[in-house]
Amino acid sequence: MNITFTVADRTGQTQTLELPDDINLSLMEVLKASDYPIAATCGGMALCATCHVEVLKGADQLLAPADAELDMLDTLPNATPQSRLACQIRLNERLQDAAFALMDTTLS
């Protein structure tokens, strides 16, 4: 099965991504592979926040963030109640029809 969701970059330009649901990747890895400007300094340990995204739609479908992610989000100047770290979101059917916006400015 394929899943589709949308991603808005820092300029607001939105693109729909369609991916098979059986590839074992995080949303951060998918965004990097799709050439979005994400540094992913820590490689996916919820320790650098360079994959900071805002969930514009579908937040309730996602698994709740763990403590490590909440701790990191708490330190960010521009975090909102919809903020997540893409490295902590697994690519699966929960992402169907969700919408994300990139929030980190490291590489933009």
Binding site: A39, T41, C48, A49, T50, T75, L76, P77, D104, T106
Partner: peptide, 9 residues
């Protein structure tokens, strides 16, 4: 004094 951690540039 904004203290929001460090990020690489």
């Amino acid at each position: 004094i904004p203290l929001f951690g460090l990020s690489p540039k």
